[in-house]
Design a protein around this nucleic acid. Structure first.
Lengths: 204, 204
DNA sequence: GTCTATAACCTGATAGAC
DNA sequence: GTCTATCAGGTTATAGAC
């Protein structure tokens, strides 16, 4: 307590802008966002945004890197953990992603939308190729089921976990689900996705 | 032949603009697209765009409705066909979607991105709720597996089929796949997705 | 550090000649 | 129908006062 100079609730202007940027960029994407929106959301003046972050692009990149990290940071450590089995990896991915995305459901559509315009730059910072090719996951899968392509398996798990969050706005608007029901459905998935893959992963 | 006034390759200016709009909107989305981009792509003047379509928004809505129809028009007739079994429906969905998306891989990200900004308007034109609730698919599933939620099943099929196309830019940029390999992987899916669901759909 | 005012630029849309 | 020129409004970014 004595160490703190500022009280908990006193947030720096810089952080206020960053937080506002997270909110607005996530909701509308880069192109549809105006710096004025961010300034208003932050409760500060437009000029301050440029004072702290130089430009809309620089501020965006900051947010993007953060979100990118949040999204892919979940899966990489799991895939590379030598102490877990294939089955446990599947279970962990399902569990961690559904937990993360239940908190921030807009994350996948944000990432995927912005990748569309910016695939080159984004990819440079992930190294999907390196990370996948010599991961524990790939080795384990090759040993167990050399006939299965690791990318196919990853895409299947992520498809089952992430895709519902991409359809969420449509489902909820159409009256097929409310927040509570959607969350319940996703928690169901935490249970049966691992079971589903268990039978798939059995040695032929 | 005698009926045709214009030769095959002579495309009307209106159609040239529409086609350019499809290309540019699909690639960049509404906000990031400038009417000047479309005019340039069409090889015509900016003024002509407004002459034929009045505004950027009107032109976009045209394209959007078309693509929306292309995307959802695949699944609805299959779900409502009384002459096919559940298993056949799964197989048809996988087959038709993978064929469609192999031709137009940008379709899903386009639809989902624009829904984010425009969920309300879009949903009005789909009636997901009505169409799902009293579809043949729902009836058949309820009879066979009353414990399974139809939305869960649809999301799973679509997740497995559509999600890879959303990851495509990332995979290809990262060097994990080229166009040919991606297409091969998706054709694999045409085969095993139906098999996968077959065992799932068996009566308990 | 924070504000107001404004510069500099971009973008959708139109007027008017041909 | 098609073009050039231009308007009107909006957007990012900065200058300069406090």
């Amino acid at each position: 307590m004595a160490k703190k100079i500022k009280p908990e609730d006193e947030v720096s202007t810089e952080e206020k802008i960053k937080e506002a940027a997270r909110t607005v960029f996530m909701k509308k994407g880069f192109s549809a966002t105006r710096t004025r929106d961010i300034a208003e959301e932050a409760g500060i003046n437009l000029a301050l945004l440029n004072y702290y972050f130089r430009s809309k692009e620089k501020l965006f990149e900051l947010v993007m890197m953060e979100k990118f990290q949040a999204f892919f940071g979940v899966i990489f450590p799991i895939l590379n953990d030598p102490s877990t089995s294939l089955e446990q990896k599947v279970e962990l991915i399902a569990d961690r992603y559904i937990t993360l995305l239940t908190e921030t459901p807009d994350l996948p559509i944000f990432i995927l939308s912005e990748i569309r315009t910016n695939a080159e730059r984004m990819v440079a910072s992930v190294h999907l190729d390196k990370i996948l090719v010599d991961s524990q996951f790939v080795k384990q899968l090759h040993q167990r089921r050399p006939d299965m392509h690791p990318v196919q398996l990853i895409m299947s798990i992520l498809g089952l976990v992430v895709f519902p969050f991409l359809m969420r706005p449509l489902l909820m608007q159409a009256g097929n689900a409310d927040t509570k029901m959607f969350t319940a459905m996703m928690n169901d998935r935490k249970q049966w996705i691992p079971k589903w893959f268990d039978s798939m992963l059995k040695v032929k």
